[in-house]
Design a protein around this nucleic acid. Structure first.
Lengths: 100, 100
DNA sequence: CTAAACTGCTACCGATTCGATAGCGCAAGA
DNA sequence: TCTTGCGCTATCGAATCGGTAGCAGTTTAG
């Protein structure tokens, strides 16, 4: 039988496999951040791209804007950023390995 | 004090936040796969991009090619693909939530 | 032995995305 | 009022991506 829907994980990879997508989620993990502050945290990514990523992630239901325009994670977004934690541990092992 | 090195996680995000990078790692999780088969598994991604990603991931020490030219994960790569597992669980919750 | 079929991969090129910069409209503070 | 800071859009050249064609080498079928 042919699949009528793609596996969820491939949709996730498609969304997250864009420049700055993972980083944005990561930088929002500790609470709301304004546009310009977020831009700085993301190595001064251009506002064009940042805004594009924010819109996509918002459409995906991972984040939203409060009254003061600050960007922050939804429950689903927080859930995702939590499931990104093992990646942090891995990256540190990886870096340690590449230091020599 | 100014940081003399970027946090490892941002380097990881930079590497993995490129099209097909996460997907390639994912598709290799169960063992070696040849070039054309890998291409098919990745929704027929163009050979140009696939080869670029493979080279980058190879340079990063996440995968290698055996004598028969098949691509497969290194120990570090397998470690990474394991730390991606929570993402699978999350994506399923996410999909379930978006189904209505 | 020959030829078809398949493999990994490169070349090419138009389409899309990214990145850097400038600056607008608005709100708060001096 | 004048400045300062904010969120964000516009613009445009540069880099990346995506689709197609095809080459060189190996394997398979007859």
């Amino acid at each position: 039988m042919a699949p009528t829907h793609t596996a969820p994980i491939t949709a996730a990879f498609d969304l997250l496999g864009r420049r700055w997508a993972l980083r944005v989620l990561w930088e929002l993990r500790d609470g709301p951040v304004g546009f310009r502050a977020l831009q700085e945290r993301c190595d001064d990514v251009s506002p064009t791209v940042l805004n594009a990523r924010l819109a996509e992630l918002r459409d995906a239901g991972l984040l939203w804007q409060d009254e003061s325009k600050a960007h922050q994670l939804t429950a689903t977004g927080r859930d995702l950023s939590r499931s990104l934690k093992p990646l942090l541990a891995w990256s540190e092992r990886w870096a340690a390995e590449n230091r020599r």
